[in-house]
Write a protein that binds this DNA or RNA. Sequence first.
DNA 1: ATCACTTACGGGTGACGTAAAAATC
DNA 2: GATTTTTACGTCACCCGTAAGTGAT
Lengths: 291, 291
Amino acid sequence: MIEIYLLEYLHEFYEYGTLSAAAQHLNIAQPSLSRSMKKLEEILGVSLFERHKNRIVLNEAGNLAAEYARRILEEEKEMERSVRAFERSRHTISVGSCCPGPLMDLLPKITGIFHGMAVSSAVDTQERLLKGLKDYSYTFIILPNPVESDGMLCRKYRTEQLFLSVTPFHPAASCREVSFAELNGQSFIMYAHVGFWEDIVRSKMPDSKFFLQEDFDTVGELAHFSELPHFASDITLNVMPSRQNGRIAVPFSDPESHVWYYLVCLEQNKGVVSSLLQAGSHTLPYEKATP
Amino acid sequence: MIEIYLLEYLHEFYEYGTLSAAAQHLNIAQPSLSRSMKKLEEILGVSLFERHKNRIVLNEAGNLAAEYARRILEEEKEMERSVRAFERSRHTISVGSCCPGPLMDLLPKITGIFHGMAVSSAVDTQERLLKGLKDYSYTFIILPNPVESDGMLCRKYRTEQLFLSVTPFHPAASCREVSFAELNGQSFIMYAHVGFWEDIVRSKMPDSKFFLQEDFDTVGELAHFSELPHFASDITLNVMPSRQNGRIAVPFSDPESHVWYYLVCLEQNKGVVSSLLQAGSHTLPYEKATP
DNA sequence: ATCACTTACGGGTGACGTAAAAATC
DNA sequence: GATTTTTACGTCACCCGTAAGTGAT
């Protein structure tokens, strides 16, 4: 049987082209690598290299073997990752979301219901959320659309309505609602990690410029010192009303600005999602303050 | 990094349920296996077993790990097989066919053209032929239908016409042709390894009984001492006319009894197939002997 | 002279087997 | 008492590093 370290060495040689370079990266001596490659050939009973006096290169069989080595190493990394993630999932509730909004009212609920469990959350793309769900990286995930798949449970959770947040001097401040189309071309301050919302506003306002802020609090501070509009939602307006700081929130009228969120989990974690859905009302729809 | 032997041990434990049984099958001492499983847990940082005083069983994480181990071991076996097959393909022309007929005139051609190369052949199902082609087990394969696939080359080769072989006393002996329908229900002697032909005759004559003969020569001998009909084709009738031995060959009229064969190879082996197609005429259509 | 690979040699880690103990059936 | 797992201990394989040698750039 071929041990993993031999495959690792082969892969490294494939990547670096010379034994000495590969040996350096592997933190082993070069003769050791030379010997290991011979051993690999001996086990397979197939020569994998063309050996010149001063040079050694993979032949066709060698390239084939290296390709398999890569796949097997990948699979083994996946095994380590997955088994550790599974173990972690027994102590941690890990939430993956398509955007930060629904996390704002879910995370406090989770810590309230599941005492003693660690809670972690991340915003990611739908594709990676689903992958992470399947390999136990996430206990459940939040998507802006339902999914149907074997072994998965999908439950409607709540809505979110996008708002524009502007100073009282902005033309939109007096509007009952605004549309993406009429704002297209304007510049906005935007939190960098808003997930799928970024795709939506970029596609609906392709001519606009967005000043992305890595830090969430920076968005509020920067807004305080500028006339630039930024985005809010019924969730953020409820959870952190102070953020408005004299600004006016105007809802968008486009259908894309109003989304339903769905909680998705594997069958085996259905208990977690059920508890959360039974945990009572979510933040209420935001009512525009009447001065 | 987790070495393969640990995965192998885990897999064996998964299969046999106890350390001692697994150790026996692995030809190692049982304490050694006990230690290795501990080591595996330590590397992963995850406990994989529920340990009772006198019993040790996989927990959930352990079953997950065992599943991954199985896949990785499978992949590694596949690597060994494939690399060795690739090496072999450099010294051997290996032909896979859906049935024996086309091999009868191809194999002599191959040995004629490719001096010094070993030649091997096998009859297999279409699915396994295609798999074997992709993993270098076969230099090329022979199918009763064309295939389209990236990286593959498919060329029309020749036809084969199925015949019924009967004694002069059989009612069909005087017919110009016969159909599956009119023979349905009769018994036949048949070579056991005729590939897809078996599927055809069984589906067209579902009420018939077929006495399968493992050995090819036995078919002829048995026919000599019995009145039972068997099968022939224009190829076999040409290549081994002695096999007829006083029998009459009557062609089938059904369209299924007449097939076109296609040679399929990977792009890289197109030279072999080209040479064979240029190698001149195949065996001629069989002409019924006129007494 | 430097670089890249191979061969030769000695050392240490670690995987193995044996033996014995503990616990269950 | 038979079976199964764990612990303890000594051994040996084998993988590693260092040093030296060869050939190419």
